[in-house]
Write a protein that binds this DNA or RNA. Structure first.
Length: 351
DNA sequence: GTCCATGATTCCAA
DNA sequence: TTGGAATCATGGAC
């Protein structure tokens, strides 16, 4: 703000406006057109500038009156344009190169994530899609429990979404109010100092950039909240549920009926996973745990092994006409890595 | 609260 | 890539 009087003074000191390269045609004619009253007009402009320069030295009432007089002066629009032009060519041209900024990659990432998580953009499907994806990733096969978890996840996501939109709206409103205020202020000031519409536009841009940096912080914290929610939902250990009885029966049946080689093939795992309504990975985990725990404590599992062996024997007897065979319980020594395998197995016999 | 069972994870070797 | 072994974390019975 202080620069205006100095700026104007420096240009005023260049011997009036006559012949100035930035001077519009009408000013050239009126200010430096030569002729009989040329000197008079120079004097006229000099007077105006002098009045502008001294306006700050006057009392408030005097200054108001002087301002009004200057605003009504016939030379005012032309002078205003010249000063704006001069200002444009000096101070503002320095900032010109910084105007076109590429879109912030971090902001783009945040926007994409918020869109993917269903926080920004259309609500339908977003949250539930994310919940479904999360459920699939967590491998929660026993579907009954998951519906409550999904609704819990959706409810929390919806809460985050609501807070995000409320805050965003607040920021936007504040930004608009502030922008309008500044624009009005600058328009008002443009009556007494050279502020071009372009400069006002530039100022609006600066304000918007400031507010968008605040918005970025909001987006960042929203993303963090979603990540925390998601990680909690996905953390399978927190959500561990025992398989249902039927699933455990099916797995045990397979394990003890293949005790000589309890390594289900990929197809068998898929079949078991389908039967038990769990994932293939869970089947693999179960067999891994079962093998190691059985081997560590055969005595403890003996009763269970006998029970399933008897059950399998009955099944085998019933199906004997089809030529199926039942495996009797055997020692785990035979299925150490590379041991004898009699049933289809994805793992090649290493010995 | 403690203990045990059990599903999941991690690290490592084959 | 798979499985063994150790470990973690949780559920459930007591």
């Amino acid at each position: 703000m202080d620069e205006q009087p100095r700026l104007m003074h420096s240009h005023a000191g260049v011997g009036g406006m006559a012949g100035h390269p930035g001077l519009p045609q009408h000013m050239q004619e009126s200010a430096g057109g030569g002729g009989a009253d040329g000197d008079g007009r120079k004097q006229d402009i000099g007077d105006i500038l002098q009045q502008i320069m001294t306006i700050t030295d006057q009392s408030l009432d005097e200054a108001q009156a002087r301002k009004h007089a200057l605003n009504c002066h016939r030379m005012k629009p032309a002078l205003f344009n010249v000063l704006c032009e001069i200002k444009e060519k000096t101070v503002l041209s320095i900032r010109g190169s910084q105007e076109e900024e590429p879109p912030d990659p971090q902001l783009m990432r945040l926007d994409n994530m918020l869109l993917a998580e269903g926080v920004s953009g259309p609500e339908k499907g977003g949250g539930s899609a994310a919940a479904a994806a999360a459920a699939a990733a967590s491998g929660g096969g026993i579907g009954a429990d998951n519906s409550t978890e999904h609704s819990d996840y959706r409810a929390k996501l919806s809460q985050i979404r609501q807070i995000y939109h409320t805050e965003l709206e607040k920021y936007e409103q504040a930004c608009n109010e502030f922008t309008t205020h500044v624009m009005n202020l600058l328009r008002e000031q443009s009556r007494t100092r050279p502020i071009s519409p372009k400069e006002i536009e530039r100022m609006v841009g600066i304000i918007h950039r400031k507010f968008s940096s605040i918005q970025m912080q909001l987006k960042q914290s929203t993303c963090e909240a979603v990540m925390i929610l998601r990680s909690r939902f996905l953390d399978a250990r927190r959500k561990r549920r025992n398989f249902n009885k039927q699933a455990t029966e099916i797995l045990n049946e397979y394990f003890y009926s293949h005790l000589s080689n309890p390594y289900p093939s990929e197809e068998a795992k898929e079949e078991l996973a389908k039967k038990c309504a769990i994932t293939v990975a869970q089947v693999s985990n179960w067999f891994g745990n079962k093998r190691i725990r059985y081997k560590k404590n055969i005595g403890k599992f003996q009763e269970e092994a006998n029970m399933y062996a008897a059950r399998t024997a009955v099944t085998a007897a019933n199906a004997s006409s089809h030529g199926s065979q039942a495996n009797s319980p055997s020692t785990p020594n035979s299925w150490s890595r590379g041991g004898t395998r009699t049933v289809p197995c994805h793992k090649p016999n290493l010995n």
